[in-house]
Simulated scan of single mutants.
Amino acid sequence: MKLVRIKRKTRTEKRYTSKMGILSVQVTYIKKMLLGIPVKTLHKYRETYYGEMKDCTDCYLFI
């Protein structure tokens, strides 16, 4: 059994951008796990309608 592993998980979130308004996008989180417990989020990105990968810093989480 590995002690440290990297895990990738995709989930749907509602995000807000000033140009397009509210979007429902697939956000992928890459997390470092220690003994099955998430320790740190290394990176998160989203895929656009056209297939481009973008960082999640340009759009805000809509609650």
Rank of each mutant, 00 (worst) to 15 (best):
M1A: 05
M1C: 12
K2I: 04
K2H: 14
L3Q: 08
L3F: 12
V4L: 11
V4K: 15
R5W: 05
I6G: 03
I6K: 12
R8Y: 13
R8D: 10
K9D: 13
R11L: 04
R11K: 09
T12G: 14
T12F: 06
E13L: 03
K14W: 07
R15E: 04
T17S: 13
T17P: 01
T17N: 09
S18E: 09
S18K: 15
S18P: 02
K19V: 11
M20T: 15
M20Q: 11
G21E: 13
I22V: 13
S24D: 14
S24T: 07
S24M: 10
V25M: 04
Q26V: 05
V27A: 03
T28P: 00
T28I: 04
T28Q: 03
I30P: 00
I30K: 01
M33G: 02
L34M: 15
L35D: 11
L35G: 06
L35V: 08
L35P: 00
L35W: 08
G36E: 07
I37Y: 05
I37S: 11
I37G: 02
P38V: 05
P38Y: 04
V39D: 03
K40N: 08
T41E: 13
T41W: 01
L42E: 10
K44I: 02
K44H: 12
Y45A: 01
Y45L: 03
Y45T: 02
R46A: 02
T48K: 05
T48M: 08
Y49R: 14
Y49F: 10
Y49M: 11
Y49Q: 13
Y49A: 10
E52Q: 14
M53A: 06
M53Y: 10
M53K: 10
K54P: 01
K54T: 07
D55F: 11
D55A: 09
T57A: 07
D58G: 10
C59K: 00
C59F: 01
Y60L: 10
L61Y: 05
I63L: 09
